[in-house]
Design a protein around this nucleic acid. Structure first.
Length: 178
DNA sequence: TCAATGATGGGCT
DNA sequence: GCCCATCATTGAC
């Protein structure tokens, strides 16, 4: 089964890595493409959304509010536009670079939000469309799989379908967004 | 502690 | 011209 929800759940606990920085995914949201008015792909293929309609495993990076970038992973086969927004990370390595790029010290503040984490990891619009199965940005299994429970809540900051339970977090993590 | 708000630019009607 | 899948700061309490 390959739904955005399934992939969003499966990404929790995985390791996102790029150029020496790595972090554990602790919060995701599923967007359901043409079936979901909150999704960028809802209105169909445009220059911006065409990567969403492409093959899974690619990055969809977009600019939000003129300032921040958000990282998504295309989650469904070509022609189907589901994706998963990465919303928060638990920093693991490359902390010095993350602190420099973010301008804050506290570990909990480095990547505890979708705009914060792209800045911390050095991910921006240039990475739109890159294949995450080939690098240099990668998603991999953790060295030690830790047990955790998945909490399910409505998505954050959207106006359409605001109560759909498509936000997934590692329960109790201090690195989720606030 | 918490709600309100300004920053800032691309995408789309 | 309006809308954002945000964040840090401000100011009231």
């Amino acid at each position: 089964m390959e739904s955005a929800e399934h992939v969003a759940r499966a990404l929790l606990g995985k390791i996102l890595s790029y150029r020496g920085a790595s972090a554990r995914i602790v919060e995701t949201e599923a967007y359901l493409g043409l079936a979901d008015a909150a999704a960028h792909a809802f209105r169909g293929i445009t220059p911006r959304t065409k990567v969403l309609f492409g093959p899974p495993g690619h990055a969809y990076v977009y600019l939000i509010y003129g300032i921040y970038n958000c990282l998504n992973i295309v989650s469904e086969p070509e022609g189907s536009a589901g994706c998963v927004l990465i919303r928060a990370l638990e920093p693991l390595t490359g902390l010095r670079a993350m602190r420099r790029r973010r301008g804050v010290e506290r570990l909990e503040d480095l990547a505890s939000g979708p705009g914060k984490l792209t800045l911390a990891m050095g991910i921006n619009l240039r990475h739109n469309g890159v294949d995450l199965t080939r690098g240099p940005i990668t998603v991999s299994e953790p060295e030690r799989e830790e047990e955790f429970e998945t909490a399910v809540t409505p998505r954050i900051g959207i106006r359409h379908n605001p109560d759909w339970p498509l936000r997934f977090t590692i329960a109790g993590s201090r690195f989720v967004s606030k």
